[in-house]
Computed example of a mutant assay.
Amino acid sequence: MSRLIERVLIPTDDSDGALSGAKRGIALASRTGADVHVLSVVETGNEPPEYDDELLASLEAQAEGAVETVEQMARDYDEEVDVTTVVRRGIPFQSIREYANRREIDVVAMGTTGRAGIDRILLGSVTENVLRTARTPVLAVPPNADQPAIDDVAFDRLLLPTDGSDGAEIAAEWGIALADRFESTVHALYAIDTSPFSAIGDEVPEALGHRGETAVESVRKRAGDADVDATGSIATGSPTDVILEYATDEDVDLIVIGTHGRTGIGQWFLGSVTENVVRQADVPVFCVPVSADSP
């Protein structure tokens, strides 16, 4: 049987945010039997770098040190893990995306904040650009997430927000596959946001409630077919607030969410919802693009 995840890419600049992402990425790779690729990008832009040779050499030495740190973290945790380290010059998010595509990476694991100032290599904006353009899932670790040792990283309770869209369905497939691998519990959640329809009456909220029941039941049935324990909930409020509140109240370990959902008047999950969840969450967020292959 093929592995769920075969290659995990960990971008790093040796910042606290990047190392937090590395811990989750190493835990994910080790527990799925995946190889680890560690990438640090020296930002040079589209034009030839303005750095002199001495400064460029210093930045590349820092980048080499950054990938070696993560490599050592991975080997200390799992001496059998296969680790590849790479330093590139270029625009960070483009280099990450291109490396992921060329090396057939299955998941990119990264912190959402990095260095600031002239020595920056990885920034929050880099993560957002990766999220917008990646063809594979991105495990984004926000700065508010706790900082456990790799041994203590948990994937026991997974939150799967859904709106019944294609984007939510592919995210649910990934969430259930991860839950099956980790023997986790799945929490399916649908948010009824009635604020755009407050002057219309009760018909629209009732219809949304029916849609929510259908979406949640679809996730629960899929989980049941995979012998994964699942619960389902419907809550009223803005999707971002509902997701964050539920994650806190239920002490979930990971939010698995699509990066795009419905469009038009029925939209609930847009890229902006996922980005807001990533920015504000206290737990890692596993972001699945609609273009991602099924697990």
Rank of each mutant, 00 (worst) to 15 (best):
25 G>S: 02
24 R>A: 05
53 D>Y: 03
33 G>C: 08
49 P>N: 04
30 S>E: 13
28 L>T: 09
42 V>F: 10
21 G>C: 04
41 V>E: 00
45 G>M: 09
23 K>G: 02
69 T>L: 11
64 E>G: 13
41 V>S: 02
28 L>C: 11
68 E>F: 03
42 V>S: 13
63 A>I: 11
46 N>S: 11
56 L>W: 03
27 A>N: 03
32 T>I: 10
64 E>L: 12
68 E>K: 15
25 G>F: 01
21 G>D: 01
60 E>V: 03
36 V>F: 12
40 S>I: 11
52 D>V: 02
57 A>S: 14
60 E>I: 03
54 E>G: 03
53 D>S: 13
46 N>V: 00
35 D>N: 15
43 E>N: 12
25 G>M: 01
63 A>K: 11
64 E>S: 14
52 D>G: 10
32 T>V: 12
29 A>P: 07
28 L>A: 12
34 A>Q: 12
45 G>L: 08
41 V>Q: 01
34 A>K: 10
43 E>W: 06
62 Q>Y: 12
54 E>Y: 04
29 A>T: 09
32 T>D: 14
23 K>R: 15
58 S>P: 00
69 T>W: 05
38 V>N: 13
28 L>Y: 04
33 G>I: 02
66 A>I: 06
69 T>I: 07
30 S>I: 09
65 G>A: 13
29 A>Y: 05
27 A>S: 14
23 K>H: 03
54 E>Q: 07
31 R>I: 04
33 G>T: 11
45 G>C: 05
61 A>Y: 03
61 A>Q: 14
40 S>E: 12
69 T>G: 07
43 E>S: 09
61 A>D: 14
67 V>G: 08
48 P>R: 08
43 E>G: 01
38 V>C: 14
44 T>W: 08
27 A>H: 07
21 G>V: 06
46 N>G: 11
55 L>D: 05
69 T>Y: 05
68 E>R: 15
32 T>L: 11
59 L>A: 02
22 A>M: 10
43 E>P: 01
40 S>N: 11
44 T>R: 09
63 A>Q: 10
32 T>M: 10
54 E>P: 00
24 R>I: 04
50 E>S: 11
61 A>F: 05
55 L>T: 12
39 L>E: 07
35 D>G: 15
31 R>C: 00
61 A>N: 13
40 S>R: 08
62 Q>C: 02
47 E>T: 01
39 L>D: 12
49 P>R: 04
38 V>K: 15
49 P>Y: 06
64 E>A: 14
69 T>V: 08
59 L>D: 02
66 A>N: 06
38 V>R: 13
29 A>M: 12
22 A>Q: 05
69 T>F: 07
61 A>K: 14
30 S>W: 03
43 E>D: 09
68 E>N: 15
64 E>P: 02
55 L>A: 12
40 S>C: 14
45 G>S: 08
52 D>I: 01
38 V>H: 13
26 I>H: 00
62 Q>S: 14
23 K>Y: 02
27 A>Q: 02
39 L>A: 07
28 L>W: 06
35 D>Q: 15
67 V>M: 07
38 V>I: 14
44 T>Y: 04
